[in-house]
Write a protein that binds this DNA or RNA. Structure first.
Length: 427
DNA sequence: TCTGGGGTCCTAGGACCC
DNA sequence: TCTGGGGTCCTAGGACCC
């Protein structure tokens, strides 16, 4: 005789090889072939199909280092196409919300779901159901791990990735030590390079060993984050689901250049572009910023040309999201740190101390403020309708010789009307 | 030749105050 | 000229995540 059990259950749904899966969706010929997607500027490999993984192509490896293997094995290569991936991601998340609205969208291809409302007996079946529906409605394959805490659901997901079924539940298992024993410490969520080193020095190599280490030891020799991880491995939930979409605290726009930039004028164009971009982003989320940081640097990999990296932060007297004001400050900062004679590889703009913009007028508000607000609104509307940077500032430049490399772009954009596929019929 | 971009959180240490 | 202890707040940098 047993009671129906309703323990706490958290599912981690993770899209398999997400960027590759998105490209494959619109190009079925890629199925079962080795495929990789590159990071911005065609720099590194950031998504691989199973066939590409089997060839030994590593995650995060620079593209040029794997080029031989890629050419030899006829691996299909794509530059990243974030507006496509973003759109597919929204479809996946919308589908997941049907199962439970208590969902934390953790990244572009991952979400935590609270499934405590399902009984222990039916939970694995629910996992399969979710997986099937997502696949059917969006075409994206997923892996699902279910457990009592976020950290354990990550572990379950890690195991699910290697299984044909794609679903692993740790709910109802009395002793999970034999499972945790096979999980290497560096595969535990929250344990990175430095912590791995530290744990190894202390004889901890598996998730099981960390789980069974005393809390006082972990807290004393590491920090609260590590002790939280250990607790979570024990099944004690310490990291809550963040289901409310809280406002972000900072906004960064930065890019590596397609080719090295030497002159102030070109750097200036880039910085103006990034500042405009960032301003538009925070406006779209009704945020204002208190300070801007501009940074520039040369390549850390080519020291023979001399390494230089610097940044400058400027505070605004009153929090703002006015493009013109932000660009002005950005250029001020850039002039402050620019040095002649270096080959710059990357630059960026960061807006921080973001807060919600209120419509309250203050002592310093004026009619001019209202006009600027309206100007920003019409710029945003125009750019939304006719494509980004239809309206820009002259200082953002037109030629942009420094723009990112994007040689393998698939040119598919499900969120852009102009990219609708055309079918040519011959009669 | 060619090495991504965008976040969050914690902590140590400095500045400042009484 | 000697010179304490404790508190808060802020920031830069590190570590982690995808």
């Amino acid at each position: 005789m047993s009671f129906t059990q309703y323990t706490k259950k958290i599912a981690l749904v993770d899209c398999n090889s997400f960027y590759v899966s998105c490209e494959t969706l619109f190009n079925p010929r890629l199925r079962n072939k080795p495929v990789v997607v590159l990071s911005n500027n065609d720099g590194c490999i950031i998504s691989r199909s199973n066939e590409a993984k089997a060839l030994g192509i590593k995650m995060g490896e620079p593209y040029f280092k794997e080029k031989d293997v890629i050419v030899k094995n006829n691996v299909q290569v794509f530059s990243s196409n974030y507006s496509l991936y973003g759109d597919i991601s929204r479809r996946v998340m919308r589908t997941l919300k049907r199962f439970n609205s208590n969902i934390e969208i953790y990244s572009i291809d991952e979400a935590f779901l609270d499934l405590s409302n399902f009984s222990d007996d039916e939970i694995e079946g629910v996992g399969h159901e979710i997986r099937n529906v997502v696949l059917k409605w969006t075409g994206i394959p997923t892996s699902i791990g279910i457990a009592k805490t976020k950290t354990l659901s990550k572990v379950a997901n890690h195991i699910a990735k290697k299984k044909q079924s794609g679903v692993v539940s740790l709910i109802g298992i009395e002793n999970i030590d034999p499972i945790l024993e096979k999980v290497e410490i560096n595969d535990v969520w929250g344990v990175g390079k430095q912590l791995t080193k530290f744990y190894h020095q202390n004889g901890i190599y598996s998730a099981k060993q960390l789980k069974n280490k005393s809390n006082t030891w972990v807290k004393k020799n590491s920090n609260v984050l590590s002790s939280r991880t250990a607790m979570e491995l024990r099944g004690v939930s310490c990291i809550d689901l963040e289901t409310t979409n809280s406002k972000r605290k900072s906004c960064v726009v930065s890019r590596s250049f397609g080719k090295r930039v030497e002159h102030f004028q070109e750097l200036k164009e880039a910085i103006v572009g990034y500042a405009l971009n960032a301003s538009e982003k925070i406006r779209s989320e009704s945020l204002v910023t208190k300070s801007i940081t501009v940074f520039i640097r040369t390549s850390p990999f080519q020291s023979r040309y001399g390494f230089y990296s610097n940044s400058k932060t400027i505070d605004f007297p009153i929090a703002t999201n006015n493009s013109i004001e932000i660009v002005k400050a950005a250029l001020n900062a850039l002039e402050n740190i620019f040095k002649n004679g270096y080959l710059y590889q990357k630059a960026g703009v960061m807006l921080s101390h973001l807060s919600e913009s209120t419509n309250n007028k203050n002592l310093f508000s004026s009619e001019r403020d209202e006009k600027i607000k309206n100007l920003m609104k019409s710029i945003d509307n125009t750019n939304y309708r006719y494509g980004r940077s239809t309206l820009s500032l002259a200082s953002a430049g037109v030629h942009k010789k420094w723009n990112s490399k994007r040689q393998h772009y698939s040119k598919i954009d499900t969120s852009d009307f102009h990219c609708l596929p055309t079918i040519k019929a011959t009669l």
